[in-house]
Design a protein around this nucleic acid. Structure first.
Lengths: 248, 248
DNA sequence: CTGACGCCACTGGTCCGACCAGTTGACAAG
DNA sequence: CTTGTCAACTGGTCGGACCAGTGGCGTCAG
C-alpha cells in the first residue's frame, strides 16, 4: 500500500514548525521571534523561505510583524481564525487535543439545526434538485463508508448553500477543512452517522416539503449520532494520552 | 483630526488587488493567473512581492498553486474561510455587499443565544468577575459610544471565552475582525444596541445567576436591536447603490 | 498512420547578496 | 534632565541566478 511522498515546500515547513510551537505554548504571547536572518540560519533555509513562513503566520493571526521592530507572538485565542482548528485538534506531536475536538463537535451540533431550518425556509428548486441527487447517490452507495462520508459532506454543503448565507458557507468551509485531516481515522467511528442514509433522505424531504422545525430536529439527530460515537473515542484517547501513551 | 498614514507593503497590495479581482468575479474559478514573472512585470514590483501575495491568496483558499503548472483561481464560496468576510462585505470599489452583510448579521443573531446559554452553563468565577468588570466599565462610560462599542466587543469576548469552546472563540474572532473595518461607520447606527448598558448588565446577571434560558433570551434581544438598526441602513444602501450612486 | 517516447520550453521553488527603510536605544551635547 | 543624533539592529525590496516539476510538441519506432 504505497502512498504519495509528502512534498512540502520549505516555507510550509517553516510555517508549520513555528505554528505548532506557538499553539503548543512554547512560544508565549508577547515573546519576540528571532530575527529572520537568524531563523534562516537556524532552520538552514534561505531567508525567503523564512519570510514566506512568517507572512503566513501573520495572516493566520499568530504573529505580528513590524518593520524595524521584532516579530512578536500574538495570543492566538484572541486573534486566530477558524482555519487554525485543524492544527489545534491534531497537535504538532500527533496527539489529539480532545477539548478542542469536543468544541468542534459542539459547534457542529449547534449549527446543524440552524442551517437546516434556514435552508428549509429559503431553498429554491435548484437546491431541492441538488439534495435529491446527493440522497440518490447516498442510497446507491449503501455500505461504502468512505464514499458515504464524502457524500455526507456534499449533502451538508448543499444545505448550507441553500441558506443563501455566505457567512455560514465560509464557516462551514472552515469546519469541513478541519475534518479533512482526520477523515480517514474516523470513517469507522462515524459509521452510525453517515450510514443512516434514511435520516439524510428524511432531512431532504423536510427541506423540500418546507417543514423547518422537522428539518431542524432531524439535523440535530444526525449530528448527534456522530457526536456520541466520537465522544466515546475521545474518552478512550483521553485515558491513553493521560497514561503517557504516544498514539501512532 | 489626523490619522496614521496607511503604510502597506507591496505584497499586501498585490494580495488585495488579486483578492478583490477574484471576489468581484472578474477572475472566474478555474481561470489561470499570469505567471509570477509576468505579474511582477505588470504590477511593476519584484517577483518576491508577487510570490508573497500569491502565497497569501493560496492560504486564504482563493487560488491553487502548483509547481510546474499554472496558478489557478478556486471557487472561493467552497474553499475560502471566515476571515474573508471583511473583504466580501466591503468590496474592492468601496461599495457594500448588503447580502453578505445580512448574512453576517444573521449568523451573529443565531450564535448569540447559543453562546450566552453555553457560557451560563459553564462559566466559572473568573468569567463572572470579568463580566462584572466590563459591565462596570460600560456603566462608567454611558454616552461615550466609541468606548461602549469597544467594551461591547470585550463583553462578548468574555462571554465566548466563558463557553470554554475554542471553536466558538475562533469563529468569534473572525466575526469580530469583520467589524473592525466598518466599526467607525456604524457607531451611530449601533447606538441602540451598544447604548443599552442595562441589557448587558442583565445578561451578565443571568450568566452569573445560572439562568441559561434567560441569558439566551437577553442575548437575542441585544443583537436584534443592532440587527434592526443596521437593516434600515442596508436598505438605504441598497437603494442608493441600485441607482448607481458611488457612496464615498 | 499511429502511438509512445523524449526533449524542451514553460511553470513555480529556492537561493544569494545587495541595498532600502523603519525602530530602538545608547550617548553626547545642550 | 532633556533633547537631538547616530549607529546598529529590525523587516522590506530588489534582481538575477539556478533547481525542480509539468505539459506540449515533435520525433521516431512500430
Amino acid at each position: 500500500m504505497l502512498k504519495p511522498v509528502a512534498r512540502r515546500s520549505l516555507a510550509t515547513e517553516v510555517f508549520e514548525q513555528l505554528r505548532d510551537h506557538i499553539l503548543d505554548g512554547e512560544l508565549e504571547p508577547g515573546a519576540a521571534l528571532p530575527a529572520e536572518r537568524v531563523l534562516a540560519e537556524q532552520l538552514e533555509v534561505n531567508r525567503s523561505a523564512v519570510r514566506e513562513g512568517l507572512k503566513r503566520l501573520e495572516q493566520a493571526g499568530l504573529v505580528s510583524i513590524q518593520q524595524g521592530g521584532a516579530t512578536r507572538v500574538l495570543d492566538f485565542k484572541r486573534t486566530a481564525g477558524l482555519e487554525l482548528l485543524a492544527a489545534m485538534v491534531v497537535r504538532g506531536d500527533g496527539t489529539i487535543d480532545t477539548a478542542v475536538a469536543r468544541g468542534v463537535l459542539e459547534l457542529r451540533t449547534q449549527l446543524a439545526p440552524i442551517v437546516a431550518r434556514l435552508c428549509t425556509q429559503r431553498a429554491d428548486a435548484s437546491t431541492h434538485a441538488a439534495l435529491g441527487e446527493v440522497v440518490a447517490e447516498m442510497e446507491a452507495s449503501r455500505g461504502d463508508l468512505p464514499t458515504l462520508q464524502r457524500l455526507a459532506l456534499d449533502f451538508w454543503a448543499v444545505v448550507v448553500d441553500g441558506t443563501g448565507n455566505v457567512a455560514l458557507e465560509l464557516a462551514f468551509n472552515s469546519l469541513a477543512g478541519t475534518y479533512d485531516g482526520v477523515l480517514e481515522q474516523f470513517t469507522q467511528v462515524l459509521a452510525t452517522e453517515i450510514g443512516a442514509v434514511h435520516e439524510y433522505a428524511a432531512l431532504a424531504e423536510a427541506v423540500v416539503g418546507g417543514q423547518p422545525k422537522r428539518a431542524a430536529t432531524i439535523a440535530t439527530r444526525i449530528v448527534s449520532r456522530g457526536a456520541e460515537a466520537i465522544e466515546t473515542v475521545l474518552q478512550a484517547v483521553d485515558s491513553v494520552q493521560r497514561d503517557g501513551g504516544g498514539n501512532e
